[in-house]
Each structure stands twice: as structure tokens, then as C-alpha cells.
Amino acid sequence: MTFGRKVAKNRYLLLMMMPGAIYLLINNYFPMFGTVIAFKSVNYSVGILRSPWVGFDNFKFLFRTSDAWTITRNTLLYNALFIVVTPIIAVTFAILLNEVRNRLAARFYQSIMFLPYFLSAVVVGYLGYSLLSTEFGFINTNLLKPLGADAIAWYSEPKYWPFILPIVYIWKNIGYSTVIYLAAVIGIDNEYYEAALMDGASKWRQAISITLPQIRPIIIILGLMAVGHILNADFGLFYQVPLDAGALYPTTNVIDTYVYRALLTLGDIGMSSAAGLYQSAVGFVLVLTVNLVVRKFSKESALF
């Protein structure tokens, strides 16, 4: 079939694809020309193309200090944890929600779980503060004090934050993932479950042997996409929730917050572009690698 006939045959499908493709082109592809900024010392008065090239100078600040290790470690570990824990919890909730026979109740639970996702990180930061504040926080005044324990200065003790941040992240984002997995679970053909029921399979067995294999492609695709963003930390979570407390940086500083703080006064778009490019390049390589691995084991689940 010639190219022209292919187009003619699929014209409606292509038409439907247009808005999305145009959106991607304008928002994601055209701006890629801007990557040159990462290698330039930008001077607006001569325009970006005429600004002098500086090679990799703009990238240096990312690797210059001992912070480079801290922020890379924090970003990778937190994101790896999120990538692993999110599907486990979300799939569990999706299966449970699917079993709730009262549709009204199921909707209610679902909405309650979804709600935090729509809260701005600033609001979440202050919700956290109302729990953790040293003097007035709920945990210190209503839990630790009656138990006779000393108040904890949450905002100056870095050691608690590797637990606090994942809890907040899961609480805030789990509703969103659950909805996606729930849609996949609902889409599974009921005949599988009926057959399983005939064979006397328990709910647990059904979940393990039917539901999980059926939604595996979704889990893998979402996982792959998350891996592509492994160096991009959730800025709101890591900046607002610890209230930007300096004492907590050893466990809360990630690449995004470091870049923001370091360039706040300089406002140098060359250096911030460099940081963005670095994150994207690493993400790109990781997606390719992980996809390659997935293809080795299960060809039909791979992205490409």
C-alpha cells in the first residue's frame, strides 16, 4: 500500500490524532531548540544565537560541591522508593475498591483518596506543619506529651524525613495511581473470574493469578514512564513540606530544590537549562535501558 493510500484509509484516525500531535509539537518539540541555552552564556541584547558558547561550564555548578553527591543520592533513592512502592499500594487499593459491591461507597472511598492529589504543595506543607510544629503541632502536644515523651523538633532533625516524605508522597499521590489501576482492573473480562470461581479459587488466588497478570502491561508502562523522570524530583514535596528548613537539607535536598536555591539570586537561564537537560538526558538513557531489559523478558509489555 502506498503512503498516500495509507493516509487516505486512516484519515479519520489521523485527524483524531492531530490535536494531540500538534500539542506535543508546540509544547515538547519546538522548545527543544532551547537546549542550546544550556551551552551558552546568554546575553539578551545580542539574542541567544549570538550569545557566546561556553561548552559545559553551565553544568559545573551541579557537580561542584559535596552537595552533588547528597542531591543525586536523595533524588535517586526517593524516586526509586516511590516507583516501587506506588504500584504496590495503588494496585492493592484498586483490587480492594473493585471488590466493594456498594458502588456509592466505592465512589466515596475513591474520592476521599483522590482529594489530596488536588491540594497545592503549599497547603500540604502547612497541614504537615500543624502536625509537626515543635510548640503547637498535634503530634507533639496531643500524642507525645500525654505519653510522657519529650517533644521532637521535627524541623531540625534530618533523620525523620526519609520516613515523613514518603508518607506524605503516598498520601498525596496514591489516589491518582489507584484510579488508573482501578480502570485497568475493571476492564478485565469477567469470564476469567467466573471460570476461577467454578474451580473454587479464593479471592486471593484470583488476585494473584488473574488480576495481576492482566494489568501487568499497565504497571510496566507506568513504571517505565516514572523511570524516565527519576532525576526529576517533586519540587513541591521536597521544598514546601519541609518548609525549606536548612537543617533538613541532608535528607530533603534534591536536584530540583538545589537548582532552585542555587540560582535564585543569579537567575541564570543557562545554568537552569543545563540542570534540566542533565535530568532529561539521564532519564532518557534510563528509559531506553529499562525498556531493553523489559523487552528481553516480556516482549509484548515493552514500550517500543
Binding site: I26, N27, F30, P31, M32, F33, G34, I37, Y44, V46, G47, I48, L49, R50, Y117, F118, L119, S120, A121, N173, D234, F235, G236, L237, D256, Y260, I269, S272, S273, G276
Partner: peptide, 26 residues
């Protein structure tokens, strides 16, 4: 919603960068 402001901003900055190139030349 997470950090949409910053991401949006990054996108806009980059989009505008193209404009700057053009105006810089003209």
C-alpha cells in the same frame, strides 16, 4: 498539579527562547 507552575514556566521559557532567537537576529 505538582509543581505545574515550575514545569509550565520551564516550558514557556524555552518556548520564548525561540522567539528571542528570532528577534535577536532581526
Amino acid at each position: 498539579m505538582r509543581s505545574i507552575g515550575r514545569k509550565g514556566l520551564a516550558a514557556w521559557t524555552a518556548a520564548f527562547a525561540v522567539t528571542v532567537m528570532l528577534t535577536g537576529c532581526s
